[in-house]
Every structure is written in C-alpha cells, then in structure tokens.
C-alpha cells in the first residue's frame, strides 16, 4: 500500500469535509465576517476611541474578570460534583444528575430574575447577607454569581464521562504500590481528567463572556462599576450606533478567540507531555 493513498475506514471523506466547511461558513464565518466588515466603516482612530473609552474598558475588566473567576470556581466545584456523581451511589442521584442541566435549559432571563429575587436585600439569601455588609444583587459580585450559575454544567458534563472511564484497577495498582490517596489523585486521576477539565473550563469561560440575559437583571448596570460589555453593545444599538456596537463586538471576539486559543494550546501541550511521559 502506498503511503499517499491512505484510505479512511469510512468512505466519503471529501464530501464530509466539503459539508463541514460549508456548514462552518454558513453558521459561523459569514456572520462573524459581517461584524468585521461592518466595523471597517470606522476609521482607525474612531475605532480606537470607541473601544478604549473608559466605560468600555471598565466593562471589559468586569466581563472578563468575573467570567474568569466564575470559570475557576466552576472548574473546582464542577469537578467535585462530577466526582460525587460518578463515584458515590446515594438516594436521589438521578435527580441531582438531572438538576445539573437546569442552567442549560432555563431561559437565561428567568435565571437572572430568580437570582436577583433571591439575593436582593429582602430576598431569601440576601436578607442574611445584607446585615453582614455583603451586597450581592446589583454589584459586580452579582455578576459573578450569575456567571457561576450558568457555567456549572459545562464543567460537570465534560469531566463526568472521563471520570466514568477511568479504570478502577489503575487506582488499585497505585494503592498496592504504596501511593497515598493524595498521590493517587495527583499522579493518576488528575492527569487523566485534566484535558476534559480544561475543556470544561474553556466552555464555561466562553459562555460567561457572552452572557447577557441572566446578568442584566442582577448587575445594577452602573457605568464604570457594574456594566458588562454585552450591555454596552446593546446600548450602542439602542442609539442606532451599529458600527460602534460591532466595533466593541469585534474586540470581544478577538479577546475571546485569543483566550480560547491559549487554552487550546495549553490543552495540546498537556496531552503532548502526557504522550511523551
């Protein structure tokens, strides 16, 4: 067999690739390039002034900061939840398992309104937090809470199947060879799930950056303090400033793309290192 004529097991590779490219173009590339083309109506200084206005910069800080913090928290607790769901039998497990997907299914504005109602000064949780001087609703903390809520399923659902696939024998062997529990986790389990965990983290992070519906109700929307970037895009649209809106959108796109690229590279590096080791 010649090396050049490598045939895939499945037929129709060219056709499938064609469809993939067409589909990606229609669904992703064309709308995205429209944003870039629309922005091109601005001169470079106009563009720069729009995307570096103090209010806009403050909103990047909040959006990316809160999204990152929420994704980190979700990576940690999501792993814990996935662990418990995979490893321990307990009554009501299926119900809890189903509950995880709720933030996926719930319309985001419903989530936002519910969270706001709970965390305001007279709400279920807010009434206990406020005397302690902790204000959640209508502050940046509220933004973080909403983003944590919507991000949880991404981590759980990516880590869960990998955890399920880990062979128990590996852990047993580690124990037999004298590894402590912490060593087993650190050297055996964690490296196995790390790629899935970073994927989950990246998904939760990306989702949080673009989130609008759930955040807008709990944020308070005070300029320079609790305005998220998607709100500023909407604000520009309401002023019929389509180009300004797409300019900010383009910046968000670029930052998100770079961040996701870094996470993907990191993931590749982890896999690569594992393959060598």
């Amino acid at each position: 067999m010649s090396k050049h004529k490598h045939h895939s097991v499945l037929p129709g590779f060219n056709l499938a690739l064609g469809f993939t490219l067409l589909y990606l173009s229609l669904v992703v590339l064309i709308p995205l390039s429209a944003a870039f083309i629309h922005t091109a109506k601005l001169t470079w200084p106009e563009f720069w002034n729009t995307v570096t206005a103090p209010r806009v910069v403050a909103s990047y800080r909040l959006t990316f900061g809160a999204s990152f913090a929420a994704a980190v928290v979700n990576a940690f607790f999501g792993l814990l939840v996935a662990w418990v769901l995979v490893r321990y039998p307990f009554p009501g497990k299926r119900l809890v398992d189903a509950l995880i997907d709720l933030p996926f299914a719930l319309p985001t504005s419903v989530a936002g309104i519910t969270l706001t109602a709970i965390y305001v000064g007279n709400g279920w949780i807010g009434q206990y937090l406020e005397p302690l001087g902790i204000k959640v609703a209508f502050t940046p903390i509220g933004v973080f809470v909403a983003l944590t809520f919507i991000g949880l399923p991404f981590v759980v659902r990516t880590v869960q199947p990998v955890l399920e696939d880990i062979e128990k024998e590996l852990e047993e062997a580690a124990a037999m060879l004298g590894a402590t529990r912490w060593q087993t986790f650190r050297r055996i389990i964690f490296p196995t799930i790390l790629p899935a965990l970073t994927t989950g983290f990246a998904l939760a992070f990306a989702r949080a950056i673009g989130e609008y519906g759930s955040v807008i109700f709990i944020a308070g929307n005070i300029p320079m303090v609790s305005e998220i970037t998607p709100l500023l895009i909407i604000t520009k649209l309401e002023q019929y400033d389509y180009t300004g809106a797409t300019a900010i959108a383009v910046v968000m796109l670029i930052i998100s793309f770079v961040l996701l690229l870094i996470i993907n590279l990191l993931q590749w590096w982890i896999r690569h290192r594992k393959a060598i080791a």
């Binding site: 305001v120 000064g121 007279n122 209508f138 308070g220 005070i222 300029p223 709100l231 909407i234």
Partner: peptide, 21 residues
C-alpha cells in the same frame, strides 16, 4: 443616588415595587 440603572422602565418599577429597593 441611583443604585441601579435598569435597562427599561418596567425593570425599575419592579425593583421599587416588588423588591422594596
């Protein structure tokens, strides 16, 4: 003195009337 700037008039009214803010 405005602690929240809702995106619409209804949002403000709800915060004032129902949530006691």
């Amino acid at each position: 003195n405005a602690p929240i700037l809702d995106s619409g008039a209804r949002g403000s009214a709800i915060n004032f009337i129902q949530r006691g803010i």
